[in-house]
């Protein structure tokens, strides 16, 4: 097909500045991969902060990691892997024109994302309650001066009073001011990394919902499934980041 300038030939989804659907698809995909590159760099600054700090204070990471729940972290990993599978299956459905399966897979992916955020909420609220926050936060038990820590938090926080006895982890009240400052940096990195990742999960949910609407409105066909393909690629990146976050944060001995 030869497309002359500004004349609308071919299928409805083909924009006039592209020769063919294939060219349009490849351009979109190339653009998304460049976007994923910037996403990797976006996270890389936090990974550098993590690496610098862990290499200086390995003992702080081993100590603070005991306050993260490995089971919840592993559950979240499994949930995200499952969602990656369903979204990859969704791309196959879109390519083959299996509309009902595609709708099902997108909904399962969204449910997995919601489950991930639910578990994340449980973890965050537990940490807030325990005062396991970065040093500057009001509820934190990691203030540099223990007299600045709220009495209300000291009273009910197991981390402050007992530590993790079964893991032989000292109570936070027995740490020196310097040690508390160091642990507060671990939690600052933890919340930045998981928080930025969580924002990506939420953005992914919005994206997948928009794609689902497109599918329901019959805008997705085997000839034009670019939104599904690109949305899936973005979702896989969210999964990739978590694959590294899980062992780096939760699995430190």
């Amino acid at each position: 097909m030869t497309a002359t300038a500004h004349a609308h030939h071919g299928p409805a989804h083909l924009q006039h500045h592209f020769e063919t659907s294939e060219q349009q698809f490849d351009s979109a995909k190339l653009g998304l991969w460049v976007f994923l590159l910037t996403e990797v760099l976006f996270f890389s600054a936090l990974f550098v902060a993590y690496t610098s700090y862990r290499s200086l204070h390995p003992e702080v990471f081993a100590y603070a990691s005991n306050y993260l729940d490995t089971n919840l972290g592993a559950a979240n990993t499994a949930v995200l892997l499952l969602s990656s599978f369903t979204v990859a299956w969704g791309v196959r459905n879109a390519q083959l024109g299996q509309r009902k399966l595609l709708i099902m897979n997108l909904i399962i992916t969204l449910l997995c994302a919601a489950t991930f955020m639910g578990i994340k909420y449980k973890e965050y609220s537990h940490k807030y309650h325990e005062g396991l926050l970065w040093g500057g936060a009001e509820h934190s038990i990691f203030k540099h001066n223990q007299f600045m820590i709220l009495d209300a938090v000291k009273e009910h926080s197991h981390a402050w009073n007992e530590g993790v006895p079964e893991a032989g982890v000292a109570a936070v009240k027995d740490l020196s001011n310097d040690q508390r400052r160091d642990v507060s940096i671990f939690f600052a990195i933890y919340f930045c990394l998981t928080g930025l990742h969580g924002i990506h999960v939420l953005a992914g949910m919005v994206l997948l919902t928009l794609i689902l609407i497109k599918v329901l409105r019959r805008k997705i066909t085997p000839e034009y499934y670019t939104p599904v393909d690109l949305g899936a690629l973005y979702w896989h990146l969210v999964d990739l980041v978590w694959i590294f976050l899980f062992p780096l944060l939760y699995l430190i001995r």
Partner: peptide, 16 residues
Amino acid sequence: NGMIFLFAVMLLGLFL
């Protein structure tokens, strides 16, 4: 596309 992603990983390595 794969090269772009490898490039991202290499930049991450360089940064680290």
